[in-house]
Design a protein around this nucleic acid. Sequence first.
DNA 1: CAAATGACAGGTA
DNA 2: GTACCTGCCATTT
Length: 130
Amino acid sequence: MVKITEDNKGFYDAVYSVVMLIPKGKVTTYGHVAELVHRPANSRQVGSALKHSHLLISQLAAMDGDSVSYSYQGLPWQRVVGSGGKISPRSDSHGELEQVTRLRQEGVEVSEARVVSLDRYGWFPDEVSW
DNA sequence: CAAATGACAGGTA
DNA sequence: GTACCTGCCATTT
């Protein structure tokens, strides 16, 4: 299982911080998040960070305590999707279904395992398109 | 050290 | 539009 180390700590911290900034009703991609944390080739690791967010965030909190400004409960992981808006398949489909449910609940239209509305502009640094 | 594994992405057929 | 295929890279086996 993944684990926080001195080497990867900054990466995970940055990923969770960026994901926290995505507004309700908007979505972005794993690749976009990777770019925003200046590790454009690590989109797969972004997926890993979200998959294990419960475990990893608790580890970060244990290490850094108060400086950690996010929590597993408050992390809007559902707002990160694959390129083209695809809902990434999991080994256990429960996660995918949960993601679709959460997105629809906040007004994001999802059809055929894919986000339809590409309302993703104006939420972070500059206008970013996918 | 080599091989396999992934909540990925981009290009090609 | 869909289906593969290849590149990618941290982790695990």
